[in-house]
């Protein structure tokens, strides 16, 4: 049996939130990389492989909606699981994320156990 580490890119403009995510996910054996906004995520993804993207919505330069749309435009990340992790609770924003191609929607403050379970469920 071979085991491979699930690689996750977390995209959030808050260093505090990235630190919490890194702590929660690394502690469960995931390989975690970080980007500070949608543009930084696109740059990182152009050079690196990842299994799951977890992204915030409200970010400077390129927000989470824009990031999802850009990733879905190309063939490389068309089927990549993308989980939105956000303080937003409106149904309109959730519907917009879904329409853009998000795989799931998680409301902050996140529960580490639920987040890990969601990542395991969507990771291919």
């Amino acid at each position: 049996m071979t085991t491979t580490t699930t690689r996750i890119l977390t995209v959030d403009d808050s260093p505090s939130m990235r630190a919490l995510l890194n702590h929660a996910l690394s502690g469960h054996g995931f390989d975690v990389s970080q980007a500070e906004d949608g543009m930084a995520a696109l740059d990182w993804l152009a050079m690196n492989e990842v299994d799951v993207v977890i992204t915030d919505i409200n970010m400077p330069r390129l927000d989470g909606f824009g990031l999802i749309e850009r990733l879905r435009e190309g063939s490389r990340h068309r089927d990549r699981p993308i989980l939105v992790l956000t303080t937003e609770s409106s149904d309109e924003k959730k519907a917009r994320a879904r329409a853009a191609g998000a795989t799931g929607w998680i409301v902050k403050p996140f529960d580490p156990e639920k987040l890990v379970a969601a990542v395991r469920r969507v990771a291919h």
Binding site: G104, W105, I106, V107, P109, K114, R121, V122
Partner: peptide
């Protein structure tokens, strides 16, 4: 305390 309605619930599309 964390609000009861905001407990990191996950919705997969």
């Amino acid at each position: 305390l964390r609000p009861a309605l905001s407990t990191g619930d996950v919705e997969l599309f």
